[in-house]
């Protein structure tokens, strides 16, 4: 699993859960909040992405992550295990 693929999964789940967004609009260096996501939207994006990637991470470890790229890094730690 490449990091690019993980970012693609996260991006797809962001556009599934937020209105008026295209995959190409999303910059991984930004936070989901920058695209109008509230806390519950972020929970859903994380839940759907973990399910798709078949990984399980304590969500409480994810709350301080600054942007989509860092979230992908955290996912990669578990994908590789």
């Amino acid at each position: 699993m490449t990091k690019e693929r993980v970012i693609e999964v996260i991006k797809n789940n962001i556009i599934e859960n937020l209105d008026d967004l295209e995959v190409d609009d999303i910059d991984p260096q930004k936070s989901m909040k920058d695209y109008g996501a509230n806390s519950l939207d972020m929970i859903e994006v994380v839940s759907c992405s973990m399910r798709e990637l078949k990984i399980k991470i304590p969500r409480s470890e994810l709350a301080d992550i600054a942007n989509i790229d860092h979230l992908a890094d955290k996912f990669m730690d578990y994908v590789d295990k």
Binding site: M42, I43, V46, S47, P58, R59, S60, A63
Partner: peptide
């Protein structure tokens, strides 16, 4: 059960924490 600081009342006046950690922990 888990050990997490999400929302807590460390004094008689304060009710503090991190809402996002709390919501994430709730779902876990």
């Amino acid at each position: 059960t888990t050990n997490v600081y999400d929302t807590f009342r460390p004094s008689a006046r304060h009710e503090v924490g991190n809402n996002e950690i709390s919501l994430f922990s709730y779902i876990d």
